[in-house]
Design a protein around this nucleic acid. Structure first.
Lengths: 335, 335
DNA sequence: ATTTAGCACTCGCATACTTGAAGTGCTAAA
DNA sequence: TTTAGCACTTCAAGTATGCGAGTGCTAAAT
């Protein structure tokens, strides 16, 4: 990636974000004049395409950024223009749950209006439940039952299907190790690090441990009180690339499903507070959102209420603007 | 409307509710055989069209029910088949606001799933604010400022535009009368009856009084804590007649706007509890919902929380099913 | 070795035309 | 009053056609 390729990639992305139409070599010469002819641009574009940064909707059309093109843009090319709006909207001080809920709803509406995209917010009241006991029971050679006993005395069970065959001995060994590490842990304890640790001790079945962890997360999450707020779905109608009923249906279906909205955050956000995460297309990890980008961040309120805020828009979103928008929620207004 | 016309109207509506396609004279003969030929049906259909109960999307197509056709059906023709599902979902007993909110959200999701339409619910915590004082100030000959002082000391003002010219004298007279009747009244006091009473005393400007009342309602409502729940918007995608982006956009725009959702209920529901109201097409009073029917009812919970529940679907909705669905929310399960 | 002019080629989109099926209204006879 | 029959209308789907935008490639220029 020499400097000229970067310039051209940046031009293509800026142009496409602005116009939502395939960008031609001629457009780049006209508007970003790099002192070369359109033929040269075409050659460079062909190179950028082999590198996977851009693609053609069909032969003989202009180029459109690919996911990795946007990723490159966000990581290396984006102008960090500063926007002036600093709202400090999230400096709330209340202990009333209902108040917080209504307030966050208001925040979502405002943010949706400012961004012109869809805003998702979850508030989670940390559940008190921990894992009291855990058991793996073999059913068939590739199926087992995971039984969870929670400290609230609730019993939950899930059927696991593995790719690989697992012996009863393995199950017992795994049960012991999981119990040793997970007993009396709540959601905060079930971290990536712990998973790694267990996988070091028990390295033969990485997929299985993965699967089990996912289920434990789900089980404990069910004990959490997660409230989901979605505002500004209507903004999708402003985007010319989503002018088909099928696409809109898929989007609305996804965002009306609280589980899937929670999963967006689970997939993209770590534990860190205040950091802004950007996931583009398939990085979000939800099939239906392949054409979208999510910009999200953690935040926490009084009373142990955890919040997550995300802006979801097309992959060709105004990255700079929306990153600053999310950042500005936390900033104090300068005097 | 002789009996045969009623039979044919009923057949057309049932057929259209089921199939969402214009109903031909032949279809009626085939499926509802009334021992007459299709030509006779055609003659009757022409008559039903002049009566306004059905219409043709274009000449040489079958007939589709008109709003007044559905109205006639609901009022006189509908089978009151009883459905068995009785949920008694709304027999809740809690004083926790947050609980009620989450519970109602759950109810909305369930109801949306059962009905296959969109469900709207509002919970309203009655505001304490009353009107402390009211003033009308003339601005231009067809504009005036309505100033409201609330008992919470908040001052609100709104610009009124009238069709007709209003003299300063009239404004003063009207101010006095409104003050006399409205001081220390909250939302419960601003009723249709009171409006009638004032209009009897001051009959010259019916439109004006109407306008003022609307604004007072809005002002007091702003002091109310109204929470709006909308679930199942995705169900619109199952309806073949809403297969255009424009139509879906209009629907979602309307339902994402809390004010307009509140207005749906304001327009169609009276004070009565437990009564099921059905409004079809333009009867709803919201332009964008001209192709929809709303079935709605009032309900109230502990703690002075007022709720309104509505099912909103196409005018060709399964009326019987959804009426029973709403009814069954309140019924006790029979032993 | 790099850049560029020029040209053939591809694809999508809009327009117009054709055809067949569905359904009506009307007339004249039953 | 009802019905058979027929002319007429409209929609929907399929097909042909032309146009414009844009590319890739080749051969010449730098």
């Amino acid at each position: 990636m020499d400097s000229r390729k970067e310039q051209i990639l940046k031009a293509i992305i800026k142009e496409y974000i602005f116009g939502a139409e395939p960008v031609s070599s001629k457009t780049i010469v006209n508007r970003y004049g790099l002192n070369v002819s359109s033929a040269t641009i075409r050659n460079e574009m062909a190179a950028l395409e082999t590198l996977g940064y851009i693609k053609q909707p069909h032969i003989s059309s202009g180029r459109v950024p690919a996911t990795s093109g946007y990723r490159y843009y966000v990581d290396y090319l984006m102008d960090n223009e500063k926007f002036l709006n600093e709202f400090n909207l999230l400096d709330v001080n209340t202990n009333n749950l209902k108040d917080i809920h209504n307030y966050l709803k208001e925040v979502a509406i405002i943010l949706a209006g400012l961004s012109n995209y869809t805003v998702i917010i979850t508030e989670e009241k940390q559940g008190e439940d921990k894992i009291h006991h855990l058991k793996l029971v073999g059913l068939l050679e590739d199926k087992a039952l995971l039984v969870l006993v929670l400290s609230s005395k609730k019993v939950k069970d899930y059927v696991l299907s593995f790719m690989e065959k697992i012996s009863d001995d393995d199950l017992i060994k795994l049960t012991d190790i999981l119990n040793y590490h997970l007993i009396d842990k709540n959601l905060d304890g079930v971290t990536q690090e712990l998973k790694q640790e267990i996988m070091n001790i028990f390295p033969d079945s990485p997929l299985l441990v993965d699967e089990i962890f996912k289920i434990i997360l789900i089980a404990l999450k069910e004990e959490k009180n997660v409230e989901v707020i979605v505002e500004g779905m209507k903004n999708i109608f402003k985007l010319p690339e989503f002018n088909e009923v099928k696409k809109i249906e898929s989007f609305i279906n996804t965002l009306e499903d609280q589980d899937r909205v929670s999963r967006i955050f689970d997939n993209i956000l770590g534990q860190e507070k205040g950091k802004i995460d950007i996931k583009i297309g398939d990085e979000i990890g939800i099939e239906e959102l392949i054409d979208f980008t999510v910009i999200a961040t953690n935040c926490s309120f009084c009373d142990g209420i955890q919040g997550k805020i995300g802006i979801i828009g097309p992959t060709r979103m105004f990255y700079e603007k929306n990153i600053t928008l999310l950042e500005s929620l936390f900033k104090k207004k300068e005097e």
